[in-house]
Amino acid sequence: MIQPIYFIILSLIIFVLGIIAFFIKRDLITMFMAVEVMLNAANLAFIALTKAIGIIDGQIIVLFVITVAAAEAAVGLAIILLIFRQKKTIRTEDIQVMKG
């Protein structure tokens, strides 16, 4: 049997990789994908803790996270599509309308 701590360490690594990916990438879609990576890292931690503690509720939370991620992806991508139609770009440095 593998100790749950390894899974959690793995999830930590993936999470940090997700953060770095978010800051390296320069277009909205890929940055959005990086957010999905971070969500997955969190999911992995949840499942590992479920295993460690022995309560099934963590898996339920993962199911909800996946559902909400699907909803979020749908709306987020629609917004990105809209931005692209209006600005003809999805590069973050070209999008600056909220500047004070």
Partner: peptide, 29 residues
Amino acid sequence: LFSLLDAPFVAVVQIIIYAGAIVVLFLFV
């Protein structure tokens, strides 16, 4: 990894929805 952690249902959901649906949605966009 999920199925290794005794979560077969979540593992299947992960593969079908995440890998199969959400990322494909990204591909379409």
